[in-house]
């Protein structure tokens, strides 16, 4: 990642926390779970937009990360490695590290912000156990979504992959809000990955509808399926 992209992501993180604070104090006063609180069930679209900023950043910075590997400079690397899959998975691994790193920066920035603005209030670390549950889900669901985008890049152009993943994210969050508010067909939530990383939509503290344990199982299964599919595709894809 270039310095310019990293700085842009930092600006996105700062802007996001300020906008959360401006639009919804109940989330951004950060006595709860900060950024990982996600979008309220009542579908406040202004908060959906604010929450979406970080994922959009991740998605755009990953644009072409796999496609360029199979059709550009990666060809030079691949023929030297003598493997079609090794470097592909190394790239996915690099993305995992990048997503984790940026998410940790995001948590860190929001903790500092919370500390400055809410000195006298109870803080998230009153329940560290729950925090780790939801923060882990947040990072893992972001990773699975970017992994889907990378897997799609092996079948379509990077622009199509980006579009499909982002439409899925926005559709999932919107539909998730509807399902939770009506409390009908909530099992569909398990197909709507972006909701997994949102504290207000999970039952970490029995507030939402997604069981964190089951969410972890779904995300692990999806990671395994994506790994197998990506391996098969990299083995057979025409590098044109």
């Amino acid at each position: 990642m270039t310095k310019r992209i990293f700085l842009t992501m930092l600006i996105v993180i700062l802007l996001q926390i300020l906008l959360f604070d401006h639009f919804d104090g109940s989330i951004a006063d950060l006595t709860g779970y900060m950024i990982v609180s996600g979008v309220p069930i009542s579908n406040k679209f202004v908060l959906l937009g604010t929450w979406y900023m970080f994922f959009a950043g991740l998605s755009f910075l990953s644009l072409g990360y796999m496609r360029k590997y199979i059709s550009g400079y990666g060809v030079y690397l691949m023929i030297r490695e003598k493997s079609r899959v090794k470097l592909g998975f190394r790239r996915i691994g690099n993305l995992l590290i990048l997503i984790s790193g940026l998410s940790i920066i995001q948590f860190f920035v929001s903790i500092i912000f919370a500390y400055i603005t809410n000195e006298d209030q109870a803080f998230f670390y009153d329940d560290v156990h729950s925090f780790f549950w939801i923060a882990g889900l947040y990072m893992m669901s972001n990773f699975v979504l970017i992994f889907i985008q990378m897997a799609l890049e092996l079948h379509a152009t990077e622009e199509v992959a980006l579009l499909l993943v982002n439409v899925y994210v926005l559709f999932s969050v919107t539909l998730g809000g509807v399902l939770l508010s009506t409390q009908k067909l909530t099992w569909i939530l398990y197909f709507l990955v972006p909701n997994f990383g949102m504290y207000v939509r999970s039952d970490v503290l029995e507030t939402g509808g997604i069981s964190p344990v089951q969410a972890y199982i779904v995300l692990t299964l999806m990671t395994i399926i994506l790994t197998v599919l990506t391996y098969g595709r990299l083995k057979k894809i025409d590098l044109i």
């Binding site: 550009g72 400079y73 060809v75 023929i79 003598k82």
Partner: peptide, 20 residues
């Protein structure tokens, strides 16, 4: 038996080096 020929180099259209 092999994924790529051993000790081979290529110049392929549209394959660029790292611009940065």
């Amino acid at each position: 038996d092999i994924s790529f020929p051993a000790n081979m180099s290529v110049i392929i259209e549209n394959t660029s080096l790292l611009h940065q």
